[in-house]
């Protein structure tokens, strides 16, 4: 020990020791809390946030758990999570099967929010994205059984846009149609009225977080026909396109088949030969009208 200042040395030592003790103890607490925080970011699939809610990660940083949105919801849709709920304690959520969102035009819950947790830019409730309805069970949905239930379609506040009935032949009877409820994500607000009103014991249609409900194309992916529509024509010079020879049994002829030897394209079924020649890349049998 330094003999010059034994007292201050001892004091410094004590200080360092105490600080290390605190840092370790509180660090442990912080670690535990951090891990718990990570867990509580996992919102259960059936818990929906109010309209305008930021993505879950941001929401948990912005929401100050005051419950003003809960208070200003005229339908008692929202509730604050209690400690035993699988949602971050004190944050607002709703369960569509219990009470769905009624999509008030003035969106009082968003107006009441004192933070940006509910995005105040949202002024048109039809643009809300609380989730996306998915007709999750094709085996029990009555319309898939060939019946005309249609309830989810009828109650949808964005009827004929968010949910349409798509007609398909009923293969079982061979003579009827099936009217399949089909959700269109660009219009679905995730209000949950379809899930609430599904007549089955367990709803066949459910509002899920977009992350669970939607796939996503790779960033590099371009859908040819849409690019073509945007550009107003093919993006490449199709006259210079190469068509590799198709291997066919000798003497066989395929409609639309391009024969490099003669430089001639076989006429397609039911189509003028000249038309097929315009799009040499078209695979045989496709692109023609049936």
């Amino acid at each position: 020990m330094n003999s010059k200042t034994p007292k201050s040395n001892a004091a410094r030592r004590q200080f360092l020791f105490d600080s290390a003790k605190m840092a370790c103890g509180v660090g442990m607490l912080g670690l535990g809390l951090g891990l718990y925080a990570k867990q509580s970011k996992a919102l259960p699939a059936l818990a929906l946030r109010p309209p305008g809610a930021l993505p879950e990660d941001d929401f948990l940083g912005a929401c100050i758990r005051c419950g003003l949105c809960v208070r200003d919801c005229p339908y008692n849709t929202l509730e604050l999570a209690k400690p035993e709920h699988p949602v971050a304690t004190g944050t607002p959520y709703f369960t569509a099967r219990n009470i769905p969102c009624e999509m008030c035009e003035d969106i009082p819950c968003v107006k009441a929010c004192p933070t940006q947790a509910l995005d105040h830019q949202l002024t048109d409730i039809n643009k809300a994205k609380m989730g996306i309805a998915v007709l999750i069970d094709h085996e029990t949905c009555l319309n898939f059984l060939g019946l005309r239930c249609d309830v989810c379609y009828r109650v949808c506040p964005v009827i004929d846009k968010a949910i349409t009935l798509d007609m398909q032949p009923n293969q079982r009877t061979g003579r009827h149609a099936m009217f399949l409820p089909t959700v269109h994500s660009e219009h679905c607000t995730g209000c949950g009225k379809c899930e609430k009103s599904c007549v089955l014991e367990e709803s066949a249609i459910r509002v899920l977080p977009p992350k669970l409900a939607q796939g996503s194309l790779g960033q590099h992916y371009r859908v040819g026909w849409e690019e073509q529509k945007k550009a107003g024509g093919s993006l490449i010079d199709e006259t210079k396109m190469l068509d590799l020879p198709d291997r066919l049994p000798e003497g066989a002829v395929l409609p639309g088949h391009y024969d490099p030897a003669s430089g001639h394209t076989e006429a397609m079924r039911g189509m003028a030969g000249s038309e097929a020649g315009v799009i040499p890349s078209l695979p045989p049998g496709l692109g023609g009208k049936p």
């Binding site: 925080a37 948990l60 304690t89």
Partner: peptide, 26 residues
Amino acid sequence: TGMVLWELINPVSMLHRGLIFGIGTA
């Protein structure tokens, strides 16, 4: 964590919120 961290376990707000909005296991 990007979260309001102490609010995950803050007993003060848990009790107060609980008395007003329903206590649950708080």
